[in-house]
């Protein structure tokens, strides 16, 4: 039987790929979108000049960095949960049938 034919089960390679795909989605794609404030910067520079404008952009970029750090923590929590599911399912399989 291959994994696709299973009604219940866990695929270790599948779990690892799923976690990697989520890491890419959250830590790379979402984070790079958060860090790309270029359109906001362009809009600010087109209509606002001074220390206040510069500080506004610094504050926004700082908030974006903090947001990325929090998403990283969220991703770690998720990863721990999925790995926990995998471990629990593997442990269950290990323990279900005892050697007689």
């Amino acid at each position: 039987m291959d994994f696709q034919g299973a009604s219940y089960g866990v695929d270790i390679m599948g779990i690892n790929n799923y976690i990697n795909d989520l890491n890419t989605a959250i830590l790379t794609n979402v984070s790079s979108t958060i860090r790309d404030c270029s359109e906001v910067e362009a809009a600010v520079k087109a209509g606002w000049v001074g220390q206040s404008a510069d500080q506004f952009l610094l504050n926004l970029n700082k908030a974006a960095d903090q947001m990325c750090d929090t998403l990283k923590e969220l991703q770690k929590t998720f990863e721990a949960e999925i790995k926990g599911i995998k471990d629990q399912m593997m442990d269950f399989d290990d323990a279900l049938v005892e050697e007689e």
């Binding site: 219940y8 695929d11 799923y18 989520l22 989605a25």
Partner: peptide, 14 residues
């Protein structure tokens, strides 16, 4: 996109 593009089907069954 995370919800629409990613599925645990290849990782978990049941």
């Amino acid at each position: 996109k995370i919800n629409s593009d990613l599925s645990p089907d290849k990782a978990l069954k049941g």
